[in-house]
Design a protein around this nucleic acid. Structure first.
Lengths: 165, 165
DNA sequence: CTGATTGCAAATGCTTTGCACGCCA
DNA sequence: TGGCGTGCAAAGCATTTGCAATCAG
C-alpha cells in the first residue's frame, strides 16, 4: 500500500519536473504508516522522532505537494490549525463525525448522502466536484450510561477535549 | 430584523455581565445590514468606511462574542482566512455550495439532507448537534455556453477567482 | 552540469494580548 | 469606586520565503 503511494508520488513528481528526495520519501513514509489525522507540527514531531530528518520548511513544502497530488486532504475539524487527512486514498469520498464530548473523529461514507448531494447540486445548476460534510455530535453512550471509553482514553492521553459549541 | 439581533445581543451580554457599547452596536449594524460573508479584515474596512469607528482589536473581540452568542458562524469556504456568515439567524441549518469557476457561494437548505445526516449520526451512536456541508462545483452554464454572468461580474469587481482544486 | 531541493533564519500576516486610560453602573 | 471596554502597540504563532549550499538525474 505504501508502495502504491510512492508510485503515485513519483508519477506526480515526474509530470511536474520535480525530484525524488530522501526527505520527501521519509515524510511520506511517516504520514502513511498510520491513518491518523495530523497537523503540520505533529507531523514534524513524528519525523523528528523517526530516524530520518527533514526541516520544518521541507515538511510544509511537502505537505503542499501531497495535497496538490491529491494524496492528502486538508480537512476542517473545527480547529484553528490546518488538519491533514491521509485516508482519502483508501476512502475517496468519506466524511467526518466529530464527537464534541471527547474529540474523537469518525470517518464514514454513505452513498445515499453522496447521491442526494449530487442531485441538489445539479438542481442548482452546477456540476459536482467535491463535497465535504462535517457533523458534530454528542456521544449517546456517554449520555445514557455516564461514561464512554473514548472519553476516558482522551483524558488519559491528555488529549484536548473540545469546547462544546 | 436588525432590532431583533440587537435584542438578542443585549440579552446575551446581560447574562454574561457585559455591556452595551457604541462600538459593539456599530459593528453589529455593519455586519447585519448585509447578508454577505466576510473576513475580520473586510469587516474592519467596512467599519472604517462607515461613520462609526472601532479598532481592529475591538472588531476581533466582538466577532468572538457574536460567534459565542450564535449570531455568527465561522464557515469553511476553503480559504485560508476565517470567514464569517451572518445568515444563520434567518436560515439556521443552511449549507454552502462554492462555484470553483467564479467563487460565488450559494446557500441552500434541504430537509432530506438534514434527515439523512441525522439518521446516519444516530446509527453511529451519536446525538446530532450540528452539521455543515460544503460542496464545490463547476458552473453548468459556463460549461455549456462558455459564459456565466457571475464569472463576468467576478472579473469586473476584481474578485479573486478560486484556484481549481 | 544544471536546476531542483534543503535548512536556516528572517519575514509575513492574521490574530491575540498587555496595559493605561476612559467610562458606565 | 469597581471593573468592563477600548485603542494602541507589542507579542504570538503558524506558515512562507530568500538565500547559499547541496544534491539528484
Amino acid at each position: 500500500m505504501i508502495e502504491e503511494i510512492h508510485k503515485k508520488v513519483s508519477a506526480f513528481l515526474k509530470t511536474k519536473g520535480l525530484r525524488n528526495t530522501p526527505q520527501r520519501n521519509a515524510i511520506i513514509d511517516v504520514i502513511f504508516e498510520s491513518d491518523e489525522h495530523f497537523t503540520a507540527d505533529e507531523l514534524w514531531e513524528r519525523i523528528r522522532k523517526s530516524n530520518s530528518k527533514a526541516s520544518r520548511a521541507t515538511v510544509y513544502r511537502t505537505l503542499s505537494l501531497l495535497v496538490e497530488a491529491n494524496l492528502l486532504h486538508e480537512i476542517d475539524l473545527g480547529e484553528d490549525l490546518k488538519t491533514y487527512d491521509p485516508n482519502f486514498h483508501d476512502k475517496p469520498a468519506h466524511n467526518h463525525l466529530i464527537c464534541v464530548d471527547c474529540g474523537k473523529v469518525l470517518e464514514f461514507e454513505d452513498s445515499h448522502l453522496e447521491l442526494l448531494n449530487d442531485c441538489l447540486t445539479r438542481r442548482m445548476g452546477f456540476r459536482p466536484k467535491s463535497q465535504s460534510i462535517r457533523i458534530e455530535a454528542n456521544c449517546e453512550k456517554l449520555r445514557t450510561s455516564g461514561t464512554c471509553p473514548d472519553l476516558i482514553n482522551a483524558r488519559v492521553t491528555g488529549k484536548r477535549i473540545p469546547k462544546k459549541r
